[in-house]
């Protein structure tokens, strides 16, 4: 039978030491044992590899999603990374959103100079509860299976709007419009919602960028700027900065199921 106090600390003891637990005998041994120091170094490397593979923002968003939507059964194979546009049913589903959300945004939210703002509403696959997505691009909004998002905005002094999304592999998708010049907004500055909702498929992070301008720009220019930003961030969406574009832009990040 193995001893509870062996000559070398056991792996579980080394892990506990690394986690900050007080294990006097193991700590004393470790201080003078090169072999155990090497094992500890391996464990530290494991933690570093983990942090490299799964950044904290992604980790936190995934955990928070799991608290809301526990997985009870093994998951099926993931589908290809692409964006589905769910139109008819979702338009009906989200028809009442502006009335529901207005009071929250008007109370603070992400209002910027000129009165322009963006809000993204998340809705489940059925007529379930809805919520406002995180407005901090460094805190991704975790999406459950079948959840859709709908982009709302108030353009303020701006007259045109366009939106693209970019995933972790660097694939940029033109959302609104899918091609051509950016969309003309209402002149009265009231809140509008994009014509349909979006469902992201695939895995990992997805960054949505909404750009408002005074003059129309081609969505292809937005797409190119997003790609350049992605390359500059070396593929780390958490590091994606402001795109080199005129006007004002709003970034939102989602963690896909």
């Amino acid at each position: 039978m193995r001893s509870a106090v062996p000559q070398h600390p056991r792996e579980i003891e080394l892990r506990r030491l690394l986690a900050g637990e007080q294990l006097t005998d193991a700590a004393a041994h470790l201080a003078s044992c090169a072999e155990c120091k090497a094992r500890v170094k391996e464990l530290e490397d494991q933690q570093q590899r983990f942090e490299g593979a799964i950044p904290f923002e992604r980790f936190a968003a995934g955990v928070e999603r799991a608290t809301r939507q526990p997985r009870a059964t093994p998951k099926t194979t993931r589908g290809p990374v692409r964006i589905l546009i769910a139109i008819a049913a979702t338009v009906l589903l989200l028809a009442g959103i502006p009335l529901v959300m207005r009071s929250q945004v008007d109370g603070g939210g992400n209002r910027l100079k000129g009165g322009s703002e963006v809000e993204v509403v998340v809705a489940g696959p059925a007529n379930g509860p809805q919520r406002m997505a995180s407005d901090d691009p460094l805190q991704p909004e975790a999406l459950g299976h079948g959840e859709r998002v709908r982009i709302g905005f108030r353009a303020g002094a701006y007259r045109y709007v366009a939106a693209v999304s970019i995933d972790e592999s660097g694939e940029v998708t033109a959302l609104y419009p899918e091609r051509g010049p950016s969309l003309r907004v209402r002149a009265d500055g009231t809140r509008e919602y994009m014509s349909d909702s979006l469902e992201f498929t695939g895995h990992g992070l997805e960054r949505v960028v909404v750009v408002m301008t005074s003059e129309p720009i081609d969505v292809e220019d937005v797409r190119r700027a997003a790609k350049a930003g992605y390359d500059e961030a070396r593929g780390n969406l958490s590091q994606l900065g402001t795109l080199d574009l005129p006007g004002e832009q709003f970034h939102r990040t989602f963690l896909k199921p």
């Binding site: 933690q47 983990f50 406002m132 995180s134």
Partner: peptide, 24 residues
């Protein structure tokens, strides 16, 4: 329609601690 909160957590500081200590 019912609006629920999402995306933010008051426990992020603790979650970061868990991430750094036990994640690997």
């Amino acid at each position: 329609l019912e609006v629920i909160e999402g995306g933010k957590s008051a426990g992020r500081v603790w979650l970061k601690e868990l991430y750094l200590k036990f994640g690997g």
